[in-house]
């Protein structure tokens, strides 16, 4: 299978982080990106679960890439992904029950996260095991970092905390009754709501566009 134009390891790894970042450049996997990034902890859990499923499905697909029949390909991908998502879901239920309650149906929704099926189709079904693993790591890492970044921004703005730890001075309850200035950070609850998700992601994408234009 060794051909001259097979992708190199390092560029593949780096592509996932910026140039082909699943969220920021390819606009894939939007649902979890928006839904579970109201705090960093859920974002991290979601990112790592997705990365795990991505890695496993890339390995399996890459191993059986020469045996795949074209018209049963997608069915095979879906079956593989669904299996590993079930495993990830069970793991969370068994070892991180609080997280599993919080993320609820968004964990099984990893099945229809376009990133995974897209990588299976575009990378794993054409490349060897090594490149597929590197690709999954790069993409999974890129996805997790982006999710955490969004989660951090939203969590700081909506509660003044990161990882549940207060970093901006908390405001005392009923401060407005004393008639003085606010004695701490006024939480902007809107950022924990759907509005915050859409607007934050929109502005970040705008920023990325701007940076890309500057460097181009």
């Amino acid at each position: 299978m060794a051909n001259s134009d097979s992708p190199k390891a390092l560029p593949t790894l780096l592509a996932g982080l910026w140039k082909e970042n699943p969220v920021l450049a390819l606009l894939l996997g939007m649902c979890p990106t928006l839904a579970v990034t109201s705090d960093v902890k859920s974002a991290l859990t979601m990112g790592l679960s997705t990365a795990f499923v991505l890695l496993c499905s890339n390995i399996v697909v890459s191993l059986m890439r020469n045996l795949l029949k074209p018209h049963l390909r997608i069915l095979m991908f879906t079956l593989t992904i669904a299996t590993f998502v079930t495993i990830a879901d069970l793991y969370l239920k068994a070892f991180l029950p609080a997280m599993s309650d919080k993320l609820g149906p968004y964990i099984p929704l990893i099945i229809v996260n376009c990133i995974i099926i897209c990588r299976a189709e575009a990378c794993a079904s054409k490349n060897g095991l090594f490149i597929s693993i590197i690709d999954a790591i790069g993409m999974g890492f890129g996805f997790t970092i982006t999710l955490c970044m969004l989660g951090a921004i939203r969590e700081i703005l909506s509660t003044g905390a990161v990882f549940g730890k207060q970093i901006l001075p908390a405001i005392s309850e009923n401060w407005y009754l004393t008639g003085g200035m606010p004695d701490g950070f006024i939480p902007m609850f809107a950022f924990a709501l759907p509005v915050g998700a859409f607007v934050t992601l929109g502005l970040i994408l705008g920023l990325v566009n701007m940076i890309n234009k500057k460097t181009a």
């Binding site: 709501l193 759907p194 509005v195 607007v199 929109g202 994408l205 705008g206 920023l207 566009n209």
Partner: peptide, 17 residues
Amino acid sequence: ALKGAPITLITAGLLSM
């Protein structure tokens, strides 16, 4: 910089509100 997906997302945000 906001053309395309970014402005769509922001619009969606306002709609969701």
